[in-house]
Write a protein that binds this DNA or RNA. Structure first.
Lengths: 219, 219
DNA sequence: GATATTTTTTAGAGATGTCTAAATATTTCG
DNA sequence: CGAAATATTTAGACATCTCTAAAAAATATC
C-alpha cells in the first residue's frame, strides 16, 4: 500500500484491469464501462499515470503498470471473497452477490479480508467459478475454453460463468445450469451461433452472448 | 427513504443524534466530534435544514427533526448490527468492532441488514450492551444507572459499556470486566470520584471517566 | 491522398465538502 | 453596563470528480 487511493481511482484501476486482458484499453472503452464521459477518463488516467499505476501515451490507450496490476488484484480479491462469503455465509444467490460485493469491496479492511478468507477456508474460486487472487497477487488456474467453442455431441462441465448480469444468471438457474453441471451439445445454429444443449432431460437454447461467457471443461 | 444522503450527511446526522441526548447540539460540539471546522458544520447544517432533517436557528444550536431521527436510527441499527455480526460471526473482539463497523455502516444494503439480523436472531443489543434500534425505529430498553453513581458495598452487574475507546475496552478486558460481570464497590475517592471495585479476587481502580461510561444493574 | 468520420484531449464550468480569515452575534465578567 | 472572550456565520478559496463543447489527432473512406 503506497498511499490511499480514492474510490474513484480504484474503480478506474479495476475497470482497466478488466479491459486489458488482451491489449491496451481505449479511453472510450473505459468511459463506457464506468458510465462516465471520455473527457473524465482522460483526466483520471493522467492522475493514475502520475501515480505510476498506468502507462499511457496520448491517443494510444492505457495499460496497468505492475503496481497498478497489484492494486487491481487486491480489489478483485476483496470482491470475489465477498461474493463467496455472501453466498456461503449469508445465503445470497449467485445472481445477487455481485451488486452487494461491488459496494463493499472498497470499504473492508485487510483484517476483514483475512477473517472472511479464513472462515471460507482460504478459497480459490468465487460463486461464479472466477478465480480469487491470492494475497500475494497470484491467480489460481482457470478453464479458458468457451461453451461457444464446444463441438456437437461433446459432453462438457460448466466450470465458470463469467457474467454479472443477474437476469442471465437467473435464467441459467431456472434451467438447472449451475456450476459443475454436465451437459451435452445437441446442435448449433450456423447463422447465429446459438447452441442447443441437453441437460439431463431438458433441452435449452443458449444464444452466443451467453455461451461466450460460460467456460467449460471437456469430458 | 426519501432520497439518498451522502456519506457526509449521514455522518453529521449520526453525530447530531449522539450529541442531542440532552438538549440541542452546538456548532462547536459537532465540529469537535467530526473533526471538521465550525464553518463546515454551519454550511452542512444549512443543507440538512433544507432537507428537513434538522431544526436550526442561527447561533442557537441544532436538533434532529423526526425524519432526521429516523435516519440516525437506521444508521445506528446498521452500525450496531455490524458490530454484533463482526463479533459473533467473525470473531472480532469488542474493542475491534467499532472501527470496522464505522467503515461499513454506510455501504450495506437493506437486504444485507436483514440477512445479518436474521443470522443473529434479530438481536436487541450489540457487543457493548448498547441497544440496536428496531427496523421501525424503536429503541430496546437499556439500563441507565452509571457505575459512577453506585454506592459503597453495593453489588452491581455490568450491562453496558458505552465507549468506542479501544484502549479502555482492552483495559477492562484485561481486568476481567466484561459484560454481565458482577462486582462490588469497595471504595470511592472523594476527590477524584475514582472507584475501587472488587471483581472476584481482583481489586481494580477505575477513574471517573471510565465509571461514567459503564452502565449497571443493581443487585 | 484528400476528405470525412471517429476518437481523444483540452478548456472551462459545476457540485460537493472541506478549509482559513474576517465579520458578527452571544456570553461572560470585572 | 460595557469590554473582553467565545461562538457562530459569512466570504472566498481549494481539491476532487464530474460534465459539455470545442479543438486536435488518428483512422476510415472514397
Amino acid at each position: 500500500m503506497t498511499r490511499a487511493l480514492t474510490q474513484s481511482m480504484q474503480d478506474y484501476v479495476k475497470a482497466i484491469y478488466g479491459l486489458t486482458r488482451s491489449g491496451p484499453a481505449s479511453t472510450n472503452d473505459i468511459a463506457r464501462k464506468l458510465s462516465v464521459s471520455a473527457a473524465s477518463v482522460t483526466s483520471m488516467v493522467k492522475k493514475l499515470h502520475e501515480l505510476k499505476l498506468v502507462r499511457h501515451t496520448s491517443y494510444r490507450g492505457v495499460a496497468l503498470s505492475h503496481a497498478g496490476t497489484m492494486v487491481a488484484l487486491e480489489i478483485l480479491r476483496h470482491h470475489r471473497l465477498l461474493e463467496l462469503y455472501l453466498n456461503e455465509a449469508l445465503g445470497y444467490a449467485w445472481d445477487e452477490v455481485h451488486a452487494e460485493a461491488e459496494k463493499l469491496e472498497h470499504h473492508i479492511s485487510e483484517d476483514f479480508e483475512d477473517r472472511i478468507a479464513k472462515v471460507l477456508g482460504d478459497p480459490s474460486y468465487d460463486p461464479h467459478g472466477d478465480p480469487i487472487p491470492t494475497k500475494d497477487g497470484r491467480m489460481p488456474p482457470t478453464v479458458s475454453e468457451r461453451l461457444a467453442d464446444a463441438n456437437i455431441n461433446e459432453s462438457v462441465v460448466i466450470r465458470r460463468v463469467s457474467s454479472h448480469d443477474a437476469a442471465m444468471l437467473r435464467m441459467l438457474t431456472s434451467h438447472g445450469l449451475l456450476l459443475n453441471t454436465t451437459l451435452r451439445i445437441a446442435q448449433r445454429d450456423a447463422d447465429t451461433g446459438a447452441l442447443v444443449v441437453q441437460n439431463g432431460k431438458r433441452r435449452i437454447t443458449l444464444d452466443r452472448e451467453i455461451t461466450e461467457n460460460i467456460f467449460i471443461e471437456r469430458l
